[in-house]
Each structure stands twice: as structure tokens, then as C-alpha cells.
Design a protein around this nucleic acid. Structure first.
Lengths: 215, 215
DNA sequence: TGTACATCAGTGAACGCGCGTTCACTGATGTAC
DNA sequence: TGTACATCAGTGAACGCGCGTTCACTGATGTAC
């Protein structure tokens, strides 16, 4: 009977913890999801691999069948984060018609991703300051820069006749404003400013007021 | 002889570690300094009280004569940070003549503080997401909001006839751009954009291009 | 179609380590007389 | 001015705990015959 139950539930990922088969099915993804929710609560340095294992319903040694060590899990989260992030920025860029709309939608997508994936963002930006600067710059070449290039392209399309330095300044300003907005929103810092409607609408007004309609 | 040496050096804080007296003189400040340099390297969650004690040249139990626990040290750093931060913003606000200069100098002071005191910033903004939301909001009332009020005042002076919502949007945009600029600079994220001169000049141009000369 | 076997994803117990914190102590300081 | 004593900032050793990681193992899966 016990074996029958196990066989029935075999192969179905993301099932209830009690009916889980001996072979989990998709422990790798489940561990990443658990880690993300723990990082959201405790931060990148504050979460523990053991807690992630417990949350996934497996023993504390199980993660080592899928990740060489804790760092490897974090790198997997970072990679997944950049992939999703760049895909979101790409979609935003493509979806918009005019250059100014492209710039605005890029900004909105940037902030939306950060607010919807706070743990991913923390890992993506938090891993930079530490250890592997070699591996980081390697990833930069592929993944990380591509969002930046879309921003450069949008600004270039919006101000084709502006001097290169001005365009560069506008790129920096745009990146800064969306990054700052996202971080302050995540930290709850804007509470001091009182509630002024949905975050996305505030952001759109701020972007139009500054970088989108500049000059 | 040994005792004589100790008596000679007694009472002089911040002296060489070898000649330190039995009573340190200013262990509290020394511990804070040590903690700051460790936090700069390892992050708020990554630094250890024991390492700070060793770096200060005392036993691992010594810090408990000055701080109830690790949290208390972090709160002291946070308080010191907000005091210095607000004083820098105040000086910037007072030093500038015109409203637009006030806005620009506020932004420059914000970023300069962040770049010069990265560990303070990490503690000031990193402690928000965690535990004591009560104590945080208490501090918000006194310290934290005062910098924000200067920003509100500068924007109000710059656009006295603008609708309140537009002013609010400009406040959010200004705060976001300086915060984002500071964070991205600290993370080294701007490396992907190539070197474009001193950070402060870049920031000034970005500010003038967007929030200072808006409309 | 059924069975032996290699493979592989799990288990559970243990390790070593670093960290926050405590405790009984001791040396130095300042003060009352 | 010199001395006894309370106070207080340090010491050094130890505690308990949680964490990353390892290891010998075992149950499940899929495949060759």
C-alpha cells in the first residue's frame, strides 16, 4: 500500500509534501524556490542551505546531489535571475513603438522585475561585491550587459543628434533612477513620503518628468 | 618597567596596538571603526563581533563592556551614520544659494556620503528589512526624515507654483536617482558603461540633465 | 514479459568550525579618609 | 600625602548552537538480456 502510494505520486513535481515519492522529481527547482523565499526573508548571507532543504522536505544532505555547494546554488539563482531579467527587458523594448516609449517601458520592466523578484535581485547584485570577480565578469559579458545595451539603444534612438557625452549621462541617469526607485521601494523607504498611489504609476510619472521628456 | 610603560601610554586613544594600556581608553570608538571596516568587506550579516574585537586588539569578551550585544553595536553604527548623513545634507543645503543649487548639492552630498561611508550606508539601509520595525520607525521620526524634508523644501522652493503631485514626483525622482547612482557606483555596476570621468562630475551632469533643470 | 543489475537520488548521523555570549577572574583607576 | 577600597574595563576559557559539508548507506528507477 505504501509502495503503491509512492508509485502513484511518482514523477509529479510540486506535489504535497506528505505524498512525495522517494525520488523527488524536481528537487533542484524546489530547492531554488525554497532558497528564494528564505533569501527574501533573511538575505543572501542570512539564509541556510539546511533550512532550504527542510523547506523542500528533504534531508540536509540532499541538496548536494544537485549543487556542488551553497555557492553553486546562489550562482544558479543568479543565472536564472539574469535570464528572466533580460528576457523581461527585451520584451519591454520590443513591445514599445516609439523610442521614448521604449525608454519608459524598459524602466518599468526593470522596476517591476525587482519588485516581483526581490530575492533574485539581492543575489544578482549582492554577489558582485564578493569572491569570484572572475566568474562575474565572465557572466557580465554574456548576460548582464545585454539589458544595458537596450538602454543605450533606446537613448540613442531618442536623441540621435545629441553629443555622445550627453547620451551617456542620460543612460546613467536612467539606470540610476530606476535602480534607486526599485531599491527604495523594496526597503520601504518611501513610507516617509506618504502613499501616492500605485508604485508603477509613480514611476511612470517620475520617468516622464525626468529622463523620458528631457530637453 | 612593564607597568611604567603602561602608565605612560595610559589615556591616549588610537595608539599603536603593542603599547596599548590595559584600559583601552576608547574601545567603543575603536570597535565601531573595526566593525565598519569589516562590514565594508563582508557585509552587515557577514561580519563577526569576535573579528572586530581581534582587530581592535582586545579579547572577544571585551565588546560586551560597551555594547549589550551585536545588535547594539549595529544600532550605534546606524545612529552615528544618520547623524553624520543628516549633518552633511544640512551643510550642503545651507551652503547653496539658489533652490536649484540646493537640490544639486543635496544630491551630491547624498552620493558623496554613500561612497565615503559604504559600511554606514549598508547598516543604515540594511537594518530596515529586519527585526525591530518599532525601533526603526522611532528613529525615522527623528533622524531619518530630516534629510527627506530638506529635499522636499528644495523642490518646493524650485517649483513654488507646480501642483503638489508634480512636486512629489520630482522628490521621488530625485531621491531615486541619487540613491541608485550611489548604489550602482558602490557595486561597480557602472564598469560596464566605461570610464567617463570622476563620479561626482558625472552625477552633477546627470542631475542637471534631469531633476535640476526640469521643465 | 520478467528478472538481475547498474545507477542514482535520497537518508540519517556525524564532523569540524565559527560565532554570539557568559562567567569567574584580575589588573588598573579614582576616590574617601 | 599616602593608603584602603569600590568600581570598572579588561582577560581567557568555555558554553551551546547552527551551519556547511561528508560519508556510508538504502530505496527507487530504468535498462540489458
Amino acid at each position: 500500500l505504501e509502495k503503491a502510494t509512492k508509485k502513484v505520486t511518482q514523477g509529479k513535481p510540486a506535489q504535497g509534501k506528505k505524498e512525495r515519492a522517494y525520488h523527488h522529481g524536481d528537487l533542484r527547482a524546489t530547492l531554488i524556490a525554497a532558497a528564494l523565499s528564505l533569501i527574501e526573508r533573511d538575505g543572501v548571507k542570512g539564509f541556510s542551505l539546511k533550512d532550504a532543504a527542510v523547506m523542500a522536505g528533504v534531508s540536509t544532505a540532499a541538496p548536494y546531489r544537485h549543487f556542488a555547494d551553497k555557492e553553486a546554488l546562489l550562482r544558479a539563482i543568479q543565472d536564472e535571475g539574469f535570464r528572466q531579467f533580460n528576457s523581461a527587458l527585451n520584451a519591454a523594448y520590443e513591445s514599445a513603438g516609439t523610442p521614448s516609449a521604449k525608454l519608459e517601458e524598459l524602466g518599468v520592466a526593470y522596476v517591476r522585475f525587482a519588485l516581483e523578484h526581490p530575492a533574485h535581485i539581492r543575489v544578482m547584485f549582492g554577489l558582485r561585491g564578493t569572491d569570484d570577480s572572475a566568474q562575474d565578469s565572465a557572466t557580465d559579458g554574456d548576460d548582464n550587459a545585454s539589458g544595458f545595451l537596450l538602454l543605450v539603444a533606446a537613448v540613442e534612438a531618442l536623441h540621435p543628434d545629441a553629443p555622445a557625452e550627453v547620451r551617456h549621462d542620460l543612460v546613467m541617469a536612467s539606470w540610476s533612477i530606476v535602480h534607486g526607485f526599485a531599491m527604495l521601494q523594496l526597503e520601504g523607504a518611501f513610507a516617509v513620503a506618504g502613499d501616492n498611489g500605485p508604485a508603477e504609476e509613480q514611476l511612470r510619472r517620475a520617468l516622464r518628468l525626468t529622463v523620458v521628456n528631457v530637453q
